[in-house]
Amino acid sequence: MPVEAVICIPTFRRPDWLRRTLASVAAQQGDVGYAVVVVDNDGANPVGAALASEVLGATALPHTVVVEHRQGNCHAINRAFEVALATYPDAPYLLMIDDDEIALPGWLQAMVGLARERGADLVGGPVIRQFEVEPDATVMRHPLFVSIDGETRRIDQLHGSGNCLIQRRVFERLPAPPFDVRFNFLGGGDMEFFTRCRLAGFETWWSAEAVAHEFVASGRTTASFLMKRSLRTGSINYMIDRLHRPLAIALAKNAASLGLGVLRGVSVLLRTGSPLLASHPLLMPVGRVVASLGLLPKPYRSST
């Protein structure tokens, strides 16, 4: 079959998890001809690239494996899309899945099938968390683990790139590179990209059948990690507002969100009795203010 879809997988120092991702992608069945592009972002020790070449080389799948030496998740993702667009010029659909995820059976068919049927510019699907160590019920209810769900339908925009399809025409209409490298080490480059897609008038759909599972390490369920991530989410939201709205509006939103954050935090605490859950609406506006002062967290920067 001719290549109709290209599945892009950026990876960084997760060879064991990448093996699972590749196995799930290689197992996809249906009437969609597809290729795989893997970008290893560890230029110093690209074990992910070696693994991908080994695993995909044992299949009949067309594939391309490259190393992106510029550190940063936006650099890696941009390189993946760049290689996919150039190497498979007749493929109208580009998909992405992260190296800590697996695609369930029928994932590719559901994604491409909906794009064919609806002519959607972008398609997203559910990401169901699988925890390395089962956290307590409070952590499971944390807003950071809540995502879009429900029936297949048209939606306003996507928020994450870990389970998505993007039509080639989107890349042709938007300026290159697609992901703003200012979000390289902060995160949120995907949300900023999808914000631009919405503002440009692209049509986004949600496929309930295109399911991926995300493996969550135990370190990502601690109170400390979740509180830092709440702060970072606020910083990302401010940066996106700052890029697409006047400064005065972004700063006014900071002030309003601080007041609302206190009220919402108290409300959540009274309703749930959980300081952790109550901290989220409080810390997000704090993250906005911190970002407005130019103090951005960089959780994705590696020291080596």
Rank of each mutant, 00 (worst) to 15 (best):
P2I: 08
P2V: 11
C8D: 02
C8R: 00
I9T: 12
F12C: 04
P15L: 07
T21S: 15
T21Q: 09
L22K: 02
A23M: 04
S24F: 03
A26I: 01
V32W: 04
A44M: 07
A44C: 03
P46A: 14
A49M: 03
L51Y: 07
S53Q: 13
E54Q: 14
P62E: 10
V66A: 12
V67W: 11
Q71T: 10
E82L: 07
V83M: 08
A84T: 00
A86T: 14
L94W: 04
D100T: 13
P105V: 13
E117W: 05
G119M: 10
G119A: 09
D121M: 06
L122V: 11
G125A: 06
P126T: 05
Q130F: 02
F131C: 12
E132C: 07
E134L: 13
P135L: 12
P143I: 12
P143K: 14
T152R: 01
Q157P: 00
L158V: 03
G162S: 13
F179T: 05
N184E: 15
F185V: 04
D190N: 09
M191A: 14
R196M: 10
C197Y: 02
A200L: 02
W205C: 13
S207P: 01
H213D: 12
A217E: 14
A217C: 05
A223T: 08
F225L: 12
R232H: 11
N237K: 07
R242Y: 08
L251G: 07
K253H: 14
A255V: 15
G259K: 08
V262Y: 09
R264Y: 12
V266H: 02
S267L: 09
L269H: 13
A278Q: 03
S279T: 10
H280F: 14
T304G: 06
T304Q: 09
